[in-house]
Write a protein that binds this DNA or RNA. Structure first.
Lengths: 210, 210
DNA sequence: ACCTGAACACCGTTCAAGT
DNA sequence: ACCTGAACACCGTTCAAGT
């Protein structure tokens, strides 16, 4: 007797594949998931996923698209609650970024290291990435105009601040913080403190001598 | 470890496997290499590598160990040529780190994201990692004592500066710089300029109000 | 002592056949 | 239109057998 008779047509297999891929990635901690295992867990045959995605890369692209939209929405929502001061807003942006990465490590890794899909082949990935980037650029520009950040190349300053938040998040996700003697229970607090240390320091910088 | 390696038909299979693993990784751009392909290219059977490494993870650990030693030696050598000023030395350290990452992207990725081996199972990895970390800590401490960096938690300031260099290097290696409108031919210059912008800004910070 | 090569249990992907 | 399941060409790893 079959334990659970399953319908021949799944219903919404495409979405189920995306959701199960996230689940499997989070459970195994691996960034490369097995399409066969995803299919197996959903009770469909090994060939079924390839009716909805031409290859594993395309499935991972769909997962990355959903993840990046969620990051963008969270950034935009947190910015609504942030004060008007551009320095405070920049710190809030960094905090959102770090917290999202720490709470969604596999999705952060997937979106960040573009090794499992073609970033430019997606219609949505560049759009959402750019929305977050534009928020960063605007805040840095406002801060520079208000004399709250050192003058100098706007793109380079924005890049550096993004790299700071990215590097802090990445070091945790890559498992490097134990080697930096960061207590596991203090990780999030430490990363945010390190971020604030730099931003606050920069906001107190004297003009460069000409 | 015998001083005179026992010959097989090429020489020392253990070392040949490590070298070929690097070659294959650099050629394919993938961070996961096929042990079978490494064996095939060396003209040995598919089972031969497992006489020298219990599994692929162990082979990748050996590759990572060699890579990290090379990074450490480069850092130490470049510090010899750097000026006495701790700010200049910190910038030189960041430059060495970024340049090494950009010129050895697959090895940088392997050493950084510890997904392909167990960092703590290696006797040498923690030692060399810590040597570089200690150089960072010493320079930050000297800079703080000389009033060239903001006061505040030494470990957090060192972590933040490392994260800055790490983030800049990672963004390039992860292929994100095109989305930040960084011209391909200007990558290295831009990353170093971004690093200097932050370090120089911090070195001009006024004391925090109490 | 070191290496071979068959064997096993996995993959991703394809495709004729079924519903 | 959607899914199955066999088939193919790969893997990592093991191990009895060869040199």
């Amino acid at each position: 007797m079959p334990l659970t008779p399953r319908p021949y047509h799944h219903g919404n297999l495409r979405q189920a594949l995306i959701d199960m891929a996230v689940t499997v990635a989070e459970e195994t901690g691996k960034d490369i998931i097995s399409v066969r295992e995803v299919a197996r867990r959903l009770g469909v045959s090994s060939g079924a996923p390839f009716r909805h995605f031409p290859d594993r890369e395309s499935l991972m692209t769909a997962v990355a698209e959903e993840a990046l939209v969620r990051l963008r929405l969270r950034v935009e929502r947190d910015q609504l609650d942030a004060p008007a001061d551009p320095i405070a807003r920049l710190k809030a942006l960094g905090r959102t970024f770090i917290q999202w990465a720490l709470h969604n490590p596999t999705q952060f890794r997937l979106v960040s290291s573009r090794r499992l899909f073609e970033f430019d082949r997606s219609a949505s990935l560049p759009v959402h990435f750019d929305a977050v980037r534009q928020i960063t650029m605007d805040l840095v520009e406002q801060a520079q105009l208000a004399g709250l950040l050192p003058a100098g190349s706007l793109p380079e300053m924005a890049l550096a601040l993004r790299a700071l938040a990215y590097g802090l998040a990445r070091m945790q996700v890559d498992g490097q913080l134990p080697q930096w003697r960061v207590d596991t229970s203090e990780t999030e607090r430490t990363l945010i403190a390190a971020l604030d240390l730099i931003v606050d320091g920069l906001s107190r910088a004297r003009p460069a001598p000409s």
